[in-house]
């Protein structure tokens, strides 16, 4: 059964009203602010890509409720294994904006998590991060930590072998790991009905004896509630958030080749930010003046972050060699000297 707290028009369902009573004012405002920030940030990233300031980019727009709702339900010790479209998760968890920009500008330094964070660099191949999350959950269980591991992935990932191997391990060893699928309907151009004979992703949970939740992924309250609830249980679970990327797969993709306008329009009417804003207006939580100020602050923050990345990111050949091994071995030291020599003799411009 699809868990739904907030309807596209912004009205609460019965379960939604109950959940709304349970959460604090502060939480409600946080959800709103992060949704607005992430949308602004994401649109700015697309713009920067068009201006040639960053590389190919995978936009989040449309999936903010899934990403922010889940991220805000996590705790500091939780291990997070994102795929490449989780800028909303990263931003919400406090990964510096500069790191996210660095990564999409082609700098490996952007992958480095801040001290004390268990936020793993985004995984680019499909579904391969799921077994890693299983291992991290295993380590949590062995050390008896109050934490879980969560892996983010899309509907396409559910066709990969690693998805099934990971869910099987999680079921066999009873590990505290959440498999969070944002089913946005498409794996680049291939629609879910061509990806899977089962009607939904959660159908697969039964095969591995793990918990299952199917949630309206454009409903931030429902996602927040489901993840809070699932993480408390410390049991393996498959969560399917039904959502839609309103943009293209990446800035190199043209979604109009495989999706009709009418379908996109239907989903724009289910926009996650719009519906939560409608609720906040009704509940008197939306302070226009305050929000405008916040938006302006965010715009300044984004510009400053970009400037910082442009000015401060190192771009030396040593970046090729650092951390390939625990210590730079002597045979790579020689190759590093070669690379530096190429810079010195003008063969390579840095």
């Amino acid at each position: 059964m699809l868990i739904n707290h907030l309807l596209p028009c912004g009205a609460l369902t019965n379960t939604g009203s109950a959940f709304w009573q349970m959460i604090s004012q502060q939480e409600k405002i946080k959800l709103l602010h992060f949704m607005r920030f992430v949308r602004l940030f994401d649109r700015r990233m697309v713009l920067w890509q068009r201006q040639g300031k960053i590389g190919t980019y995978a936009p989040v727009e449309g999936q903010e409720a899934s990403q922010i709702g889940s991220a805000l339900a996590l705790n500091k010790l939780d291990w997070i294994f994102p795929s490449y479209r989780e800028q909303g998760v990263a931003f919400t968890l406090g990964i510096p904006t500069t790191s996210i920009i660095q990564y999409w500008s082609g700098h490996i330094e952007g992958c480095k998590p801040p001290i004390g964070y268990r936020y793993v660099p985004p995984t680019v191949p499909i579904a391969t991060q799921l077994p890693h999350a299983v291992g991290a959950a295993w380590s949590i269980k062995k050390r008896k930590e109050d934490a879980i591991a969560i892996a983010y992935f899309g509907d396409g990932a559910t066709s990969e072998g690693d998805f099934h191997e990971a869910l099987n391990f999680a079921g066999v060893f009873h590990l505290p790991v959440l498999f969070f699928c944002q089913n946005n309907g498409y794996a680049i151009s291939v629609p879910f009905e061509k990806q899977s004979a089962t009607k939904s992703v959660v159908d697969r949970a039964k095969a591995y004896e793990i918990d299952e939740y199917q949630v309206d992924g454009n409903d931030i309250l429902a996602v927040y509630d489901v993840i809070k609830n699932a993480r408390k249980k410390k049991r393996p679970a498959l969560i399917e958030a039904m959502t839609y990327r309103t943009g293209a797969h990446t800035t190199a993709d043209d979604a109009s080749r495989y999706r009709c306008e009418e379908e996109v329009r239907v989903w724009l009417n289910r926009d996650p930010l719009y519906r939560y804003e409608q609720l906040c207006i009704k509940e008197g939580l939306l302070d226009e003046e305050q929000l405008t100020k916040e938006d302006e602050k965010m715009a300044i923050h984004l510009d400053q972050s970009m400037k910082e990345v442009e000015q401060k990111t190192p771009n030396l050949p040593s970046g090729l060699f650092n951390h390939v091994y625990y210590q730079l071995p002597n045979w790579l030291e020689k190759q590093q000297e070669e690379a530096s020599e190429d810079v010195n003799n003008g063969s390579v411009h840095c």
Partner: peptide
């Protein structure tokens, strides 16, 4: 894959 997760966990 799960061994890598275990290694990350120490």
């Amino acid at each position: 894959g799960s061994s890598l997760g275990l290694a990350m966990g120490g």
